[in-house]
């Protein structure tokens, strides 16, 4: 059994992210972290591999800074890590990213399950998740909050999905791609030994030629980044007894036509 998980390095949420003088996004010297949603995917991949006596491999598509996320993943207990990078992927859109990711997954051979974090906080989207599934031609189960049953021999999986309106139980054939939510597990912290081992690991880098993949061409382009307009908020503190505060606040909200 072989499970694949995708990850990426993103700036720490607490970091001050802004547009630098060169027009690119910068977060100064702030450290990167594993994309917060991916931690649940990484943990689930470790658990699935352990339960089925299989192997869990982590892939990142991106420049060298993504090795930090891959080393964190290895330190958590992923078996192997690969990074895909190519000059042609510079400024790539989600379609190019997904094409490269699917190429790497196919190159790894007998893959049963791909686990993804719900979204990526840097690009602010989840679109690449569904595009990876389509490029693989495998079913996609998104927003998975529980894996209820999985049979790698019979190639079936049964999951609970957390939707806006409630919980849905779905079955699918394997191989499949799933994206997981926060409450699926409690991600572990890397152990000290894990961190030491991961620090020494050499992470192979695959080019598009290694994958035998041609990109569909970049279809959407980023033109510019800008800092959002400053939020012109000056807080108005409301004093008095709770009843007075309530009355004043409702007055204000009605004046502002918020209600």
């Amino acid at each position: 059994m072989h499970v694949i998980v995708m990850t990426r390095s993103t700036p720490d949420t607490a970091a001050k992210v802004e547009v630098g003088k060169d027009g690119n996004v910068t977060w100064g010297d702030a450290a990167t972290v594993v994309n917060p949603w991916d931690e649940y995917a990484l943990e689930e991949a470790i658990l699935q591999a352990k339960n089925a006596d299989g192997k869990a491999t982590v892939i990142a598509v991106g420049p060298e800074m993504n090795n930090d996320a891959l080393k964190h993943s290895l330190a958590m207990g992923l078996n192997e890590a690969v990074r895909v990078w190519d000059a042609a992927l510079e400024n790539a859109d989600s379609l190019a990213y997904a094409t490269a990711a699917a190429g790497a997954i196919k190159k790894l051979g007998d893959v049963d399950l791909v686990i993804l974090g719900k979204e990526s906080i840097d690009v602010g989207t989840d679109q690449h998740n569904y595009q990876i599934a389509r490029k693989l031609g495998w079913p996609m189960l998104s927003y998975v909050s529980k894996i209820l049953a999985v049979d790698y021999a019979a190639k079936t999986i049964k999951v609970e999905r957390l939707l806006e309106e409630g919980k849905q139980i779905v079955t699918s054939k394997l191989p499949a791609v799933i994206s997981v939510m926060k409450d699926i597990n409690e991600p572990r912290y890397p152990s000290f030994i894990g961190i030491r081992k991961a620090a020494k690991a050499a992470i192979p880098e695959w080019s598009l030629a290694d994958l035998g993949v041609t990109l569909p061409g970049t279809k959407s382009k980023v033109l510019a980044f800008s800092n959002p307009p400053a939020r012109e908020v000056k807080v108005e503190m409301i004093d008095g007894t709770p009843e007075e505060q309530a009355a004043k606040l409702v007055d204000r909200l009605l004046e502002d036509k918020v209600l």
């Binding site: 859109d93 379609l95 679109q127 595009q131």
Partner: peptide, 23 residues
């Protein structure tokens, strides 16, 4: 871009190798 729409349009954009801009 509800959860279903994001999924549907991303999938179809991948099928047709088309541009996709979300949110």
């Amino acid at each position: 871009g509800t959860s279903r729409a994001r999924e549907l349009l991303a999938a179809s954009a991948a099928d047709t190798d088309s541009s996709l801009l979300t949110e």
